[in-house]
Design a protein around this nucleic acid. Sequence first.
DNA 1: GTCTATAAATTGATAGAC
DNA 2: GTCTATCAATTTATAGAC
Lengths: 199, 199
Amino acid sequence: MTEFTKAEEKIFDAAKEEFIERGFDGARMQSIADRAGISKAALHYYYRSKDKLFKKVVNFIFNMVFQNIKQKIEEEQPFEAKVRSIIEMYMNILFQHQAVVFFLFSELMKYPRILDEMIPKQEKMLTLSKAYEIEVNKGTIRRIDSRHLILNVVSMCIYPILGKPLIIRILGFTNEEYKVFLQERKDQVFEFVMKSLRP
Amino acid sequence: MTEFTKAEEKIFDAAKEEFIERGFDGARMQSIADRAGISKAALHYYYRSKDKLFKKVVNFIFNMVFQNIKQKIEEEQPFEAKVRSIIEMYMNILFQHQAVVFFLFSELMKYPRILDEMIPKQEKMLTLSKAYEIEVNKGTIRRIDSRHLILNVVSMCIYPILGKPLIIRILGFTNEEYKVFLQERKDQVFEFVMKSLRP
DNA sequence: GTCTATAAATTGATAGAC
DNA sequence: GTCTATCAATTTATAGAC
């Protein structure tokens, strides 16, 4: 997207860290400057205001998380394999980038308007493609509102990450135990979905 | 829990509004005082610090959202009726208190430690009670890890609220359309779950 | 380009009169 | 109990030297 000089990149990384840890309101320009090893003045020289820096960071992180996912959903595959790979990859990415996901949702709940500059009118995500229709016509799976089906799958993948602070306390998990739980959960979700789709 | 004088209540309501709209870091004591129609000094007279006021607000909101839910889950009922009523009530409460839910999760992602003072060691929520065992023994439904089952149901109810800003943009919904979509979703989720539980 | 110094505004919290 | 006035600390942002 954007070309970076070395200095810019160092600053950008510093900003990412700070915003992810503290959110927009909690982040401090001084702290970003410190992380980047430069002065506050130099920071303002590169990115004129906190606001502009923040928007660039959100944009970058948003694409990082959702680009692969979108790609995978649109990819042509047999239905069952597609469901499995979406769950697999979705949960992997979300787990790998927990802090980032927290940050994104947390800030987007506060300032949903940020999204308006970021969602490029993509209606593709709700069509389950031909693979789904083929199976329905074969009678292998039942027909179902595809918007709800997708939302079901996505929900079961992402909420365990978003709700982690709550869930581990209620279920009495340690972080390590929860990691294992989420691993076995991939199969659980896949099975749950496919069983529900039986005609 | 706590007894309120009229003044305290007015302040508390003002604080709720402000914190819900702006989060802890974004909230301003001056703004809370303004909403309550008193001076900043008077505000500090009642609640000695921003921190203490915030914790009381979080505690109150947390109980408001999760008390009914916990109660409903523990209530004795035939299995199918129980699943239906949990979905129904969970989605109703979450939808009714959208702003509050956003606030709660948003802040809990940032400061998960707050929860430690709030979760009273409740392991009850993961047992599906006798109703479930009865159906399994009758052969009416298949056996499944109850933790995953509950997490599946909860996820499908709560993520559509948490992810609303994202979802309505991706699916191209207006707020009003999304409300309808969530209404019909209650049945969709119920059906999805029960179909999956067929032996 | 990068720094020091400082401006200008804001913030949470307190002192003290009434 | 409630107010005005003010403190002390912080914050974003800029001016100006090098």
